[in-house]
């Protein structure tokens, strides 16, 4: 996986409603793999209707034309519907959890940084902090870069979830 920060134009978000059945994720993953389509990130969770789950897939449209990816996905019998979300037409969020090593001298500094980003400290150890931020992916990228100034012990991003931006009549 490449960082989604480099070259937004290569990305497109697919919001895919699937049947909540065993093996559906394997079918989607298998399709991407056998057709040579690249995924930047993938987030899966049930929807408010327990019969369905929603996958938010950030696809690499340089690996294959978006239309081809969508049409092949749509052929999977368990795929109910697909919404294509251009990045500019979507609200996106991603969550990052990171554990950083920080001595007493730098603890205040890092907590201040988290405050600026409106993140949270979610766990505190004698010489480590686990911090969290949920924001748009670019901000999460910035946050991750700044955390890089400290020693990151572990870091996990969720991959993005997205919904269409609401439109208002003129």
């Amino acid at each position: 996986m490449t960082s989604p920060g480099d070259g937004e134009a290569r990305h497109h978000i697919l919001s895919v409603l699937v049947e909540n059945k065993a093996g559906v994720l394997a079918r989607v993953a298998g399709l991407f793999s056998r057709r040579g389509f690249n995924i930047f990130s993938l987030a899966v969770a049930p929807t408010d209707d327990e019969r369905f789950s929603r996958l938010t897939i950030v696809v690499d449209v340089e690996s294959a034309p978006l239309e081809q990816i969508v049409q092949q996905l749509d052929k999977l019998v368990n795929v109910v519907s697909i919404s294509q979300l251009a990045p500019e037409a979507a609200v996106e969020r991603e969550l990052v959890l990171a554990t950083v090593e920080v001595d007493a001298a730098h603890r205040g500094e890092i907590i201040e940084l988290i405050g600026v980003f409106r993140g949270e400290v979610v766990n505190v150890g004698p010489d480590r902090l686990t911090v969290m931020l949920a924001d748009d992916p670019d901000t999460v990228d910035d946050f991750e870069r700044l955390l890089g100034g400290y020693r990151i012990v572990e870091l996990q991003r969720t991959g993005r979830v997205a919904l269409p931006k609401l439109k208002y009549a003129d």
């Binding site: 093996g23 394997a26 079918r27 298998g30 056998r34 999977l76 019998v77």
Partner: peptide, 14 residues
């Protein structure tokens, strides 16, 4: 076999 044939069937069921 449903795993094996996922990519070579239109669909399969267990």
């Amino acid at each position: 076999i449903t795993g094996v044939t996922m990519g070579i069937t239109k669909h399969n069921w267990l």
